[in-house]
């Protein structure tokens, strides 16, 4: 989650860039290919470029998959921030639809709703938590997905499936 004002500050920009470069530099050695073989206790998430910040600002939303192809996610631009979530409802796994004008993810199956502006907080419905968040880092105009906060529906481990 990167705030617009932070990106616009030179110090913030440099700091984020450094993080981004560092992540790219170390990524090959730490990238978890499944689990257990990397020597890592806590198998790390892939560092994946998902699109451009300027395009996201313009369109307001950006679809991608993370951490693997079968996990649908969406980046959104709300309240001057880029945020991203797994779009699969954590009630029963239906794909949610994003209501851009409201900044709300809506499940068509049992009408659970999540507020993108409040980190995916459940507005109403039957999930036992908010939407899992995708952690983002921004390098220049590039947005990278670097991790997740919350368990994706249908997985026992976010990095498996």
């Amino acid at each position: 989650m990167v705030e617009e004002r932070q990106k616009n500050s030179r110090r913030g920009f440099l700091k984020l860039s450094a993080l981004g470069i560092g992540a790219v530099a170390v990524a090959p050695s730490l990238m978890a290919s499944g689990h257990g073989k990397s020597g890592s206790v806590f198998s790390e998430y892939p560092n994946t470029k998902i699109g451009s910040l300027s395009a996201l600002k313009k369109s307001g939303e950006l679809d991608f998959s993370y951490p693997s192809a079968s996990s649908l996610c969406k980046a959104v631009f709300v309240d001057g921030e880029a945020k991203a979530f797994s779009t699969i409802c954590t009630h029963k796994g239906c794909p949610t639809a994003y209501n851009k004008s409201a900044g709300v993810f809506e499940c068509p199956c049992h009408f659970t709703k999540y507020d993108a502006k409040k980190d995916g907080q459940m507005i109403i419905g039957h999930a036992t938590g908010g939407l899992p968040k995708v952690l983002l880092e921004i390098k220049g105009d590039d947005i990278y997905a670097v991790g997740m906060d919350g368990l994706i529906f249908g997985r026992i481990n976010n990095n498996i499936g």
Binding site: K92, A127, G129
Partner: peptide, 11 residues
């Protein structure tokens, strides 16, 4: 990845 309505345990 389990399908919609599949078996799942949330946190």
């Amino acid at each position: 990845q389990q399908p919609t309505y599949g078996e799942w345990c949330s946190e």
